[in-house]
Design a protein around this nucleic acid. Structure first.
Lengths: 337, 337
DNA sequence: CTGAAAGCGCTTACAG
DNA sequence: CTGAAAGCGCTTACAG
């Protein structure tokens, strides 16, 4: 809203607006003295170029959008942090839109951003993502997060949910656990499905018995699962929660029930949100490097924008790492199985 | 990026662009039939008005910006969630910019947003905020969060840090604690200062002995403080951490040292981030309603934008509530003091 | 109720 | 190296 325009600067400097534009945009066809004078005057007048006018003519917004289903918890602050960091490095503004549970809301959010951003990052864990795909492909460069649309023309990025879950089951089995409970995520959530698949596959491979409990990735559902397990007469010797939030909720329920972790029962999570190492006992989990995921997605988006070519369709999977901490321990000698 | 413009729609509908503009913007000087036809054609052509062109002429961006010093932890996801929710309700886009520790970075972020947003929410906990104030006042409507510049012309919003801290000290004193440790936040942070002041004032009033430990609002500094306390031969019977993150870090250190909370030592936090009730034991804390704070700030910003008048300078303080949970208990009989 | 035209503030060929 | 002019895609008085 700085009231001065490029015309004011031009007038004050005694040159044309074209010259001001060139000087301020660093083109080389301006004499150094002219440039310096213009720069000084622009600063004095507190001139800020109108981004609307510039966007209108350059067809670039210098902005990207992030459409996220929901903004709860540390997972999302980490993700946004990673995206923001990378966006800043590229001089791009970041528009954020959260709070859409369903495809309709999310599509509306995507459409609202159309024309305001040069590209879109869409966190889309719903497996029935086809509906969205159509809207997305019509238009600007897009990178999908946390989903795979195998036959989709939209590139995507996700952590190795399957591999991470498999690693955790191996870790628990390696500690002697023969019966494991898995608290799964929302039914139609891609990450939840992959983590579950990693569990069942690996459990079958190792001959480990698996009990699956429902969850929705929030603390409360983890608490409910823990509460139920605590009441079970013959309970598994280890619980693997589909994410850290549920693990923390579960830990709370187990403690409420007087069960000690890991002495009485082992507990593990997934994501390695920053707080995971600070709960008591420190949580064994799968490190997903959430901020890196966001930053990487942004980088891919930027190259898609800059290449100007149709985005190379690649479904990229990021490696994960097992973080063994204090919440998992060897199974009690005479446990079960 | 939808390639059709208002001219395409006008041509297809056999009317002027002015009529298309009026029809699509819901002006009443268009016959219903014409409007319907235009709306249908616009939909068919997937016409999305160029926000750049519209902004250029209306001088409205339909967007607000949030400048935050840092995007770590649940505090920030809650804050952004509240802002986003309220912004959506007003049909406003939200630009987010984080990761600035110092005044220079933040000023750069503010300036980068100038002209792209109709108003600004700035989380500015630094007490030496005068430098920023100048830049802010020159320009668009702004609401400051978590600071008070008594002699500032920028309106602001903060929770009752002083009152919340006072309440907590009373709560602890009421449980019989005569010696309390307070883990404070960053030295030049307004909220940290107010919380500390609430502590010292109330402790003096009640004749409670107060030990102040340094911290920076992050988990690790809470851990360090807890570690130090655990090693202290004559330690206070209660710890009040300046925020929940430090409380959780502190809890971790106390547990590592074999101290039980609350049997051996009581522990409390501030903010009531969602996870606070799920740590073990559930954390006694001061509920700050962070999402509401964000939403309220957005509402104030919107009315400033819409009134078009210079923002009414008001420094608003939001009430807080004590949440007594399991991490605080009566002081052991023969404790100290 | 509708249209022709001006103009928002820039950038960029096109001349010189 | 510099300027005059066109044009990006809209909205809105001004006429009719």
């Amino acid at each position: 809203m700085s009231n001065s325009t490029i015309r004011d600067v031009a007038r004050a400097a005694g040159v044309s607006v074209a010259t001001v534009s060139r000087a301020l945009n660093g083109h080389d066809n301006v004499t150094p003295e002219t440039r310096d004078r213009i720069v000084a005057i622009a600063a004095e007048l507190r001139f800020t170029p109108s981004s609307a006018a510039r966007s209108l003519i350059t067809r670039r917004n210098q902005a990207v959008g992030a459409v996220l289903p929901d903004l709860h918890g540390e997972y999302f602050s980490e993700l946004i942090r990673g995206i923001d960091l990378a966006a800043r490095a590229h001089g791009l503004h970041l528009l954020v839109s959260g709070s859409h549970g369903n495809a309709k809301d999310a599509t509306a959010a995507v459409n609202a951003m159309r024309g305001r951003v040069d590209g879109l990052l869409v966190l889309w864990p719903q497996v029935d993502a086809e509906a969205l795909g159509d809207d997305l492909s019509a238009g600007m460069p897009t990178v999908l997060l946390n989903t795979h649309l195998a036959h989709s023309r939209v590139p995507s990025l996700a952590v190795d949910n399957f591999g991470g879950a498999a690693k955790m089951v191996r870790h628990l089995a390696g500690l002697g656990h023969r019966r494991i409970a898995f608290i799964t995520g929302p039914q139609h959530n891609y990450e939840a499905q992959e983590r579950l698949r990693g569990c069942t596959t690996t459990a079958a491979e190792l001959g480990v018995q698996l009990q699956v409990l429902p969850g929705d990735f929030n603390e409360e559902s983890g608490w409910n699962a823990g509460h139920e397990l605590a009441q079970q007469p013959e309970r598994p010797s280890a619980v693997f929660a589909g994410n850290d939030m549920m693990a923390i909720g579960c830990l709370s329920a187990l403690s409420d029930a007087g069960l000690r972790v890991p002495q009485d029962i082992s507990l593990a999570g997934f994501d390695d949100i920053p707080i995971a190492r600070y709960v008591t006992p420190a949580l064994t989990t799968v490190r997903a490097r959430i901020a890196d995921l966001g930053a990487l997605a942004l980088e891919r988006l930027v190259s898609a924008i800059e290449s100007n070519a149709p985005t190379a369709v690649r479904h990229q999977t990021l490696a994960v790492e097992l973080m063994a901490r204090q919440s998992t321990a060897p199974a009690p000698p005479g446990a079960t199985g």
